[in-house]
Design a protein around this nucleic acid. Structure first.
Lengths: 111, 111
DNA sequence: AGTATGTACTCTGCAATGCAGAGTGTCAAG
DNA sequence: CTTGACACTCTGCATTGCAGAGTACATACT
């Protein structure tokens, strides 16, 4: 047997949350993410940075008239694909964890 | 809104695989885990060590007559609970993302 | 008996990651 | 024109992740 590997970029607490939240919400701001995910400034910035560097997230500067300028973050197509693949693999792994009843095995034969 | 946090101990590629595999298989050996998860010796040892230190996994030394001695690893009750909670939280987060939901099979009921 | 080979880990060092708080720029109110 | 809140960004350090070298012990071969 052989388990599928999990994208290490997405399989990290804060980044999984960022990606999932962005996927559900469409786009979001730094502050909203910060509030929603209970993250500290530096940490959120670092992880957002990695996702952007990987091409999973894109940022757009917004500066309406009389508005405080801020950056809006969203998943890219590539990010959406990666998230989808990630969730599928995760499902496989998790399914395996419950698919077979927990019993004592003989350990004699090879799998 | 506010997303649930993910157990950082379980939310790491190799450790998620170890926990899920152990949950499904009941118990396993170092070599079987190594083969199944495609892990290197040192890395597997390190992560197994963390799970043991956290009380999620227990190891038992086996040394039958005329047998090579080896160690058998299994989830503890605490580990099974943690995995179950972890999967529930993950499901919530993934559900929010709008992606394919993770199906929980025979793991114990959600928190 | 002695040596080689394979298996099952364990240890070590280093690179990469994760994190929090300090710092920077900008706007808006007083 | 100062003060304070907001929206980030940068820095330094602690923790983590990883691979390969090292160790121990059992079996196979000569």
């Amino acid at each position: 047997m052989n388990l599928p590997a999990l994208d290490p970029l997405l399989h990290q607490p804060l980044r999984t949350q960022i990606a999932a939240f962005l996927s559900g919400r469409g786009e979001s701001t730094f502050s909203e993410l910060k509030r929603t995910l209970n993250a500290t400034d530096g940490n959120l910035d670092a992880h957002l940075g990695k996702l952007i560097e990987a091409g999973y997230v894109e940022s757009r500067r917004e500066s309406g008239v009389g508005e405080r300028s801020r950056t809006v973050y969203a998943l890219t197509e590539s990010g959406r694909t990666a998230l989808s693949t990630y969730v599928s693999r995760l499902s496989e792994i998790v399914a395996l964890s419950g698919a077979i009843p927990i019993v004592q095995t003989s350990l004699k034969g090879k799998s």
